[in-house]
């Protein structure tokens, strides 16, 4: 970790912050999230993290 950013952790952090923000907005009734959109957001967050992990440089997580 010294001297560089762990890209996978960075992308995962952003994805989950956005997901949490979305759920907060829904709880505050500022937006209306249906089950389909919630599922889409969860899929997108998990998908982004997996893609980032798959494209990470060799030796980062192994």
């Amino acid at each position: 970790m010294s001297g560089g950013v762990d890209r996978v952790a960075f992308v995962a952090g952003i994805a989950f912050v956005l997901l949490g923000g979305l759920l907060c907005l829904d709880q505050l009734d500022l937006i209306g999230l249906s089950w389909g959109l919630t599922a889409a957001a969860l899929c997108a967050a998990a998908g982004v993290v997996l893609v980032a992990a798959g494209l990470a440089p060799e030796g980062r997580d192994e």
Partner: peptide, 30 residues
Amino acid sequence: GRRIPGGRRGWQLGLGVGLLTMAGLLVFRE
């Protein structure tokens, strides 16, 4: 110079692309 990785990374990448596609489909459905 980047190639689609094999093994575990390949599965991560494939699953990630699949989940993103699924998310896109769900959004279109909604």
